[in-house]
Amino acid sequence: MADVPLLEFADVGRDFDVSQPWLERVLSRLPKQRLVAVDDASFRVARGRTLALVGESGCGKSTVGRLAVGLYKPSRGTVRFDGQPMPSGSGRETMAVRRRMQMIFQDPYASLNPRWKVDDIVAEPLRVQNAAMSETDRAERVAALLRQVGLAPADARKFPHEFSGGQRQRISIARALSSEPEFLVCDEPTSALDVSVQAQVLNLMRDLQDRLGLTYLFISHNLAVVEYVAHDLGVMYLGRLVEVGPATTILKDPAHPYTRMLLAAVPDLAMTGTSRTPVAGEIPSPIDRPSGCAFHPRCPHATERCRVETPVAKPIGDGRVVACHLVGS
């Protein structure tokens, strides 16, 4: 059982219908329009480890996160949690899986209901998933959770607007931990925070992983943050994973041209005063994806084959899987 990954994506794809409203579409004879947000995504997250997904806007990393907690259903492929396909619906089986996973969101100002007190927010998963729990036990559990994330039990009586952004993110984490999940999806949990507060939250997340043996799917656009938290790394571009593997290997020696470009673009404190060649071009809209390898219009090494044929992800030996015609052939 030990080698069953906690989360597994097998060729998962997810489409969205972005057509015009029905009446307008019929009147102006437009076809239905589909946006492929994620395609052919395959990866595994082992127990107690962190897989980080990085990429720029529109690359589909947040969609992958929502697929992982069952907020979206896959259009193609299977998402497996602890070896079992993710159940859908609202039956007992779904609830049993639901309580084992939680999510932390990006915006600490939008992720807490402004009309609720902190204790109601933190206790909500308990109320839903453990209705038999007594009020006093629940209050004790909330106090313990708040202490665990570095807040005072007395904070339970306050409203979210009485807290700073970093403290709100701690409340979010306390809520996520209240049902004692094994798996957390963290969608850009620190990108709305100030740096000094970001460090607090990142340290807290790592401490909690060590203490509780949590498994994280960590979504971020910031490679430096990712390097700090991730064991494994997946790089996404326009809905596809272009490179997956151990974080240190990828960051030290990126194989895919896009990963290389991303790494080169990170502003660096050590680079004061020096100039570097900026990346050319911009991300195309996911609605009209370039043919073949979606990165080819920006890739300095693109060949005719890249324009026509979509590269298949293949292992290149050092634990990495790369989707590029030029790598590993």
Binding site: R66, V69, G70, L71, S90, T94, M95, R98, R99, M101, Q102, M103, F105, Q106, D107, A110, S111, L112, N113, P114, R115, E124, P125, V128, Q129, S172, R175, S179
Partner: peptide, 26 residues
């Protein structure tokens, strides 16, 4: 669209509960 509603969905709350407990007061 706000994330607190998505958080309630991840927790597994019934849509009617989300409508009346989360959305209504706001």
């Amino acid at each position: 669209r706000k994330e607190y509603v998505q958080a309630a969905r991840v927790i597994g709350r019934h849509p009617v509960a989300i409508m009346f407990h989360h959305l209504l007061p706001n």
